[in-house]
Simulated scan of single mutants.
Amino acid sequence: MFLTKTVILKIANPDNDLVETMQKYSDGMNYTSKVLFDNGKPMGAMKLQKLVYPYLRENLELKSQMSCNIPRQVAGCYKTLKKNKAKWQRVEFSPTSMTFSYKRDFTIDRDTVKITTINGRKPYSILNYDYAAQYFDGSWEYQASKVVLHNDGEYYFHLSIEKEIPDKEITDASTFMGVDVGINYLAVTSTTDKKCKFFAGGEIKNLRNHYKSMRARLQSKGTLSAKRMLKYISGKEKRLMRDVNHKISKEIVKFALENDISVIGLEDLTGIRNTTVSKVSKKNRHTHSSWAYRQLQTFIEYKARGVGILTHYVDPAFTSQTCIRCNHISKNNRNRLNFRCKKCGYENNADLNGAMNIEHKTRDFRYILESQGYLSATQTNA
């Protein structure tokens, strides 16, 4: 199994060569995008490269590896459009990002990244931090990486790294933890031995309600400045949620380590947006449908993988309606944050009861696999 990460390092001394290279790279992306768009349908990267390579090299004076990276990126972008069944449209690229291949057009150590620009290979100092030192210890392999112009006007090197880590089998696991994600509590965890932790979401919920009110006022105005502000608010809200999800996922994995957890159970939330929208009032649909449930789970998954903890996704059906004590299922068992079983009278926090059910389903999966001998066969065929 491979663990991949992106380490963001600030470039301390960007110069005109770097800026001009990024501009020409963007020009090359847009020229290539026009060629592909005029073709009327996606095409393979190699075929596209043959059509645009001479122009990229001779007219834009881009280096050889850049002239190979550009058609690969553009071809991939249009394939994604087709895969997502989006309207066929020409994609425009801004001069905010360019991709480099390790060794061919960049090398790096803890303090310096050497990048191929239009005026040759140049060294740039990077502001490194103690947390990043671990990624320069020789155990990680460097992959194609990017120089990115952030919204703060500074240039950063997004270093992509990869490391192979030993595979673990779920049948070797003995301790489990379920994680229920939501809005009132962003996450609630419960372990096999009934230890739990709550991650409150009240402050974030109030802040997002504030953004919601601002959006309503700006949308009613409809002016150009209002539209610009709407775009700004949207970006700020996404950055807020991403930061919150990073922090919570880090704390969840830390809690799992402290309790010697082998497997973290999560709900398979595929299609959660469509299901949720149909069940909540129109007034609350944006809050529910835009909540970054899946992002939080993804962060938990890769952080857990990095410390040797497995993750497993379970069917979310009835986890919020099932009594953990007697297994009685009823919609009436849950009333907002309260859970009270209509059959046996068991009472608990509703989200904690859900986390306990997720842990139980994860643990059941492990023992079913072991008893039926499916796991080894599945891994053999993988």
Score class of each variant (00 low, 15 high):
residue 25 Y to K: 02
residue 29 M to G: 03
residue 30 N to V: 01
residue 32 T to A: 06
residue 32 T to S: 06
residue 34 K to M: 09
residue 34 K to G: 06
residue 35 V to P: 06
residue 35 V to W: 02
residue 38 D to A: 10
residue 40 G to S: 02
residue 40 G to W: 00
residue 43 M to S: 09
residue 44 G to R: 12
residue 45 A to S: 14
residue 45 A to C: 10
residue 48 L to K: 06
residue 48 L to Y: 00
residue 49 Q to W: 07
residue 50 K to F: 05
residue 52 V to Q: 05
residue 53 Y to S: 09
residue 53 Y to C: 01
residue 55 Y to W: 10
residue 57 R to I: 09
residue 57 R to L: 12
residue 57 R to K: 14
residue 58 E to G: 11
residue 62 L to F: 05
residue 63 K to S: 11
residue 64 S to D: 10
residue 66 M to V: 05
residue 67 S to F: 01
residue 70 I to D: 03
residue 70 I to M: 01
residue 71 P to W: 08
residue 71 P to M: 10
residue 72 R to V: 15
residue 72 R to A: 15
residue 73 Q to F: 12
residue 73 Q to H: 14
residue 73 Q to A: 09
residue 74 V to F: 05
residue 74 V to E: 05
residue 75 A to P: 09
residue 77 C to M: 13
residue 77 C to A: 15
residue 78 Y to C: 07
residue 78 Y to L: 03
residue 78 Y to E: 01
residue 78 Y to F: 01
residue 80 T to R: 14
residue 80 T to S: 14
residue 81 L to R: 15
residue 82 K to E: 12
residue 82 K to T: 10
residue 82 K to A: 11
residue 84 N to E: 13
residue 85 K to M: 10
residue 86 A to Y: 09
residue 86 A to M: 15
residue 86 A to I: 08
residue 88 W to M: 02
residue 88 W to C: 03
residue 90 R to V: 08
residue 93 F to E: 07
residue 93 F to I: 00
residue 94 S to H: 10
residue 95 P to G: 04
residue 95 P to L: 04
residue 96 T to P: 03
residue 98 M to C: 10
residue 99 T to Q: 12
residue 99 T to A: 08
residue 99 T to R: 12
residue 100 F to Y: 13
residue 100 F to I: 04
residue 100 F to L: 07
residue 100 F to V: 00
residue 103 K to R: 12
residue 105 D to M: 01
residue 105 D to Y: 00
residue 106 F to Y: 13
residue 107 T to Q: 06
residue 107 T to V: 07
residue 108 I to F: 00
residue 108 I to N: 03
residue 110 R to H: 14
residue 110 R to L: 14
residue 111 D to A: 08
residue 111 D to Y: 13
residue 112 T to L: 02
residue 113 V to K: 07
residue 114 K to D: 02
residue 114 K to Y: 09
residue 114 K to Q: 07
residue 115 I to G: 00
residue 116 T to P: 05
residue 118 I to T: 14
residue 119 N to S: 15
residue 120 G to P: 00
residue 122 K to E: 04
residue 123 P to Y: 06
residue 124 Y to F: 09
residue 125 S to F: 09
residue 125 S to N: 15
residue 125 S to T: 15
residue 126 I to N: 05
residue 126 I to Q: 04
residue 128 N to W: 11
residue 130 D to W: 12
residue 130 D to C: 11
residue 133 A to D: 14
residue 133 A to L: 13
residue 134 Q to K: 15
residue 134 Q to Y: 04
residue 135 Y to A: 07
residue 136 F to L: 04
residue 137 D to G: 06
residue 138 G to Y: 06
residue 141 E to I: 08
residue 141 E to H: 15
residue 142 Y to A: 06
residue 143 Q to K: 13
residue 143 Q to P: 00
residue 144 A to E: 15
residue 145 S to C: 12
residue 145 S to D: 05
residue 147 V to T: 08
residue 147 V to E: 06
residue 148 V to A: 01
residue 149 L to G: 00
residue 149 L to V: 10
residue 149 L to Q: 00
residue 150 H to S: 08
residue 150 H to M: 13
residue 151 N to L: 12
